[in-house]
C-alpha cells in the first residue's frame, strides 16, 4: 500500500470572462460566460513512506494546484486520491492531523502573535504531549536557529526567519507527510542550505515523507532522489534524478530541465524510463 496514491487526478477551474459596458454587465447577470482551464490533467502519482520527491514544472504548470488537492484544500474535478489512508478533502479532521504543510508564499503562523505562542497553540491543536513538544522544539532550534526569533511576532520576521519558523511549525506534531510548496523561495544561500539540512535530518530520523515543489534545482539535487515534472497539467516525467542525467547525457540539471520545459525529449540512451509520451 502506497502512502500517497493518485489516479487520473484532474482539476478544472472555471475562468469567468466579463463583458464590457453596461449592456455587457447586464447580460452577465443572466448568462456568465466562462471557459474551462484544466490546471491538472489526469496525473497518476504514487509515493512510498519515507520518500522525498521533488515536484517541478514551469510557472503555472499546476504544481500548487496538485499540492492543494493532496492536502484537501481543493476537491479534484476527476480522479481519485488517497493519502495516508484518507481521502484528503473528505476526512479533513482526521487527515490533517497526519500532515504538515508549508506554503512558501504565505505564512500559516498567526501574524500578530509571538512565534512561541503560535507553537504553543499548535501543540494544543494537534494534541502534542508536552515532553515531545519540548524535545522537538529543542531539536529544530539546534538546526534552524530559532531561539532569537521565538519571542517576536511573525510580522516582524524577515522572509528567511519566517520560513524557518513555518517549517518548524509544520513539523511540531511529527506528521507522516510534509508538503512544501516552494519552501526556499526568496531565501539566501545560507538559509537555503540550513533548510535543506533540516529536511534531510527530519526525513532521516522520523522517516517523514516529503513532497516539495521548487524552482531551485539545488533543492532537488540536495534532497530528492526522485523528481516529478509537470507541464501544463500533465505529468511529463516521474523517475529518478540519476536517470535524467543518464538519459540526457548532460551534467547540469538546470540545462536538462531547461530543455524539458522547452518541450524537448531526451535524445541519447533509451527513452521510455519515466517518460510519459503521448
Amino acid at each position: 500500500m502506497k502512502l500517497i496514491e493518485a489516479r487520473g487526478l484532474t482539476k478544472e477551474f472555471r475562468i469567468f470572462s466579463r463583458s464590457e459596458g453596461v449592456m455587457g454587465a447586464f447580460r452577465d447577470l443572466f448568462h456568465r460566460r466562462y471557459r474551462i482551464l484544466r490546471a491538472v490533467d489526469g496525473i497518476d502519482f504514487a509515493v512510498d513512506r519515507g520518500e522525498m520527491v521533488g515536484y517541478i514544472g514551469a510557472n503555472g504548470a499546476g504544481k500548487s494546484t496538485t499540492i492543494k488537492m493532496l492536502t484537501g484544500i481543493l476537491v479534484p474535478t476527476a480522479g481519485t486520491v488517497s493519502v495516508n489512508g484518507y481521502v484528503p478533502h473528505k476526512d479533513r479532521e482526521s487527515y490533517t492531523r497526519g500532515i504538515g504543510v508549508v506554503f512558501g508564499q504565505r505564512s500559516q503562523l498567526w501574524w500578530d502573535i509571538a512565534v512561541i505562542e503560535s507553537f504553543k497553540l499548535l501543540r494544543r491543536i494537534y494534541d502534542v504531549p508536552r515532553e515531545d513538544f519540548r524535545r522537538r522544539l529543542q531539536q529544530f532550534d539546534d538546526i534552524l536557529g530559532l531561539s532569537g526569533l521565538l519571542n517576536l511576532p511573525v510580522r516582524k520576521l524577515s522572509l528567511g526567519q519566517r520560513m524557518r519558523c513555518d517549517l518548524a511549525a509544520a513539523l511540531l506534531h511529527n506528521p507522516a507527510i510534509l508538503f512544501l510548496d516552494e519552501p526556499t523561495i526568496g531565501l539566501d544561500v545560507l538559509a537555503k542550505s540550513k533548510i535543506r539540512e533540516f529536511l534531510k535530518e527530519i526525513n532521516n530520523e522520523y522517516k517523514t515523507t516529503v513532497i516539495l515543489t521548487t524552482h531551485d534545482l539545488g533543492d532537488i539535487e540536495a534532497l530528492c532522489p526522485r523528481v516529478a515534472i509537470i507541464d501544463r497539467g500533465k505529468m511529463l516525467y516521474d523517475g529518478s534524478v540519476d536517470n535524467l542525467y543518464s538519459q540526457w547525457g548532460q551534467d547540469k540539471l538546470e540545462d536538462i530541465v531547461k530543455r524539458i520545459y522547452m518541450g524537448q525529449k531526451p535524445t541519447s540512451g533509451s527513452a521510455g524510463g519515466g517518460w510519459d509520451i503521448g
Binding site: K68, G72, I73, T96, I99
Partner: peptide, 9 residues
Amino acid sequence: IALELIRPY
C-alpha cells in the same frame, strides 16, 4: 480560509 482547511479545528 483555504489554509484553515488544513487544520483540525
